[in-house]
Design a binder for these strands. Structure first.
Lengths: 300, 300
DNA sequence: CTACCACATAAAACATTCTTATCTTGCATA
DNA sequence: TATGCAAGATAAGAATGTTTTATGTGGTAG
């Protein structure tokens, strides 16, 4: 109903008071000039009184505008104090956290998340071990790790889990490769190419095998050109023009390789956060799980 | 980018603290329960900390929640003070205002507007005279009225004006009349009916005549059954079954008569607010004109 | 157990706010 | 005065945000 006065509008208003120009505020705040006009109009409407006299070349706050400015500044001060206090409360959360993660989540998902968490709770010490999904789940179960991140959901009621991200395994090629500018390639076409696999025990390779197996394709019959020990080495080999690799979509951004799609097929899988089902958890663990759960929502 | 913390969310939060239940707050505030959940989530996201513990049957504020509550209350207090001070400033606008208005604006548009203005500026005394459009304009020009409302735009550069509302002259009949349930009637059909006109000098009658004249219809050839002296009497006569009247669409709501439409024809006109073009105007007049200009925007 | 109550989640409807494009006005310059 | 420029206003459509409706989930009491 009433649109409500929000911190953003008040900030705009303070900037107008400071800079004395709508356009300049717009530039400074990275929004368009009409957006500034709009916000001022909204404030004036909500308060039922003119705040800024813009009939002359130079704009001036009205008396009411001056009053609102004081309010906006008081408000900002309170807001700052609030921020500080909440910061403090977050610092109260401290201790050590031992995490296990499988390769893809550990290398491509966790680093950013842990950095944000660490910034939010500076007093926390985190150690993250990287292994494979099965090991992660076992170590969470036996309480070696307090939390784990893996590519397969755990079984049994002793462990709780939730999905943290979706992923897709996609074929990649060097930019000069014939497939580089094609949206889709057919499974038959792949068979004739120089393929680069991961070792058979890797989670990615196993997912690839089982996902293709579901649609009747047996990749064991495809003779790989190379078998490499990590996602990074596959990407490096592909970049060097050694052939076609299959890697997690999460791993390729910024690597310069080109991705394709297999016709009629999405090789998707999910990653999970796993922890022991218990009534009592440490405040730290609770905060961490909570953070992971809401991470996606609050970071784009 | 950030959605910003607005007064509405904080109000919801205070209500939650007071009532201890999302659902109840939803009922009380006339919104749905998911809307309440949503707002709390937004707050928690923005502040990056859990505010309400809702894992048990009864919900409790966390420490951070308690802190936010104090903030919300301080905020509300400041907001209240601001409201009071602005109120005060509005009261500083005082004096007398003499307004002229033609019939339709004077009877159907102004009453509500003046009531709202009066509430906002209690120290102002307003007198509104009702006459016809031409008189209104003349009296504004000679400074008898400070502002005028009329159905025709003024000529000459000494007067400023702007549109305040659009209107349509439409045929009306009693609910039992053969035209009552028809969307449209043709001009020919009208000619044969018992017609009720206003006197020839009325603004409505003149608009009717000129608007129909433009499409080649000369209503002087239509013999009216009755010629009445006011919009209200036309409506009364129509209600009594005396025939077909032509009145402003603004005048008929709640009167019980049925409106029709003349095929292929919209008899539209606008109403204007008129005042003298001067550099210096009284604060009262400025506030009044400003209010009228923004009235439409801020009241639905 | 089972029913119920309270909060969470999802999808779609709905509303607000922003951007782009264009207009108007005042002022400075020629 | 014309002419151009800079600042703000306005309009229409795009992009976001918020709410609703419908449904899921879990805890608690009977």
């Amino acid at each position: 109903m009433t649109t409500g006065m929000n911190t953003e509008y008040l900030k705009t208003f303070r900037e107008i008071a400071r800079l004395g120009s709508f356009s300049e505020v717009a530039r400074e705040m990275g929004i368009s000039q009409p957006a500034v006009s709009f916000q001022v109009q909204k404030l004036e409407q909500e308060l039922g009184i003119r705040l800024i006299d813009r009939s002359q070349k130079t704009i001036t706050l009205t008396k009411a505008g001056e009053r609102l400015l004081r309010f906006a500044e008081a408000m900002e001060g309170e807001r700052e104090k609030l921020r500080g206090d909440l910061e403090q409360m977050r610092e109260d959360i401290s201790g050590d956290l031992l995490i296990g993660a499988s390769t893809i989540p550990g290398e491509y998902l966790l680093p950013k998340m842990l950095a944000v968490f660490k910034q939010r709770h500076p007093a926390v010490k985190i150690q993250a071990d990287i292994s494979d999904s099965v090991t992660v789940i076992n170590r969470v179960r036996d309480n070696t790790y307090e939390v784990g991140f893996c590519g397969i959901p755990p079984e049994g009621k002793d462990l709780a889990f939730f999905k943290i991200a979706g992923d897709e395994i996609i074929p990649i090629v060097a930019p000069g490769h014939p497939f580089a500018n094609r949206d889709e390639v057919s499974p038959e076409e792949l068979e004739g190419e120089a393929l680069i696999f991961r070792e058979a025990t890797s989670g990615t390779q196993r997912s690839l095998e089982s996902l293709l197996g579901r649609v009747g394709i047996d990749i064991k019959k495809w003779a790989p050109q190379l078998v490499l020990g990590s996602t990074r080495s596959v990407i490096a080999a592909v970049s060097a023009g050694a052939g076609i690799g299959f890697v997690s979509s999460l791993a390729i951004k910024g690597s310069g390789v080109k991705s394709a799609r297999i016709k009629g097929l999405r090789l998707t899988r999910d990653f999970y956060c796993v922890y022991r089902q218990e009534r009592v958890v440490s405040r730290l663990l609770e905060a961490f799980i909570d953070f992971i759960k809401t991470y996606e929502k609050s970071h784009l």
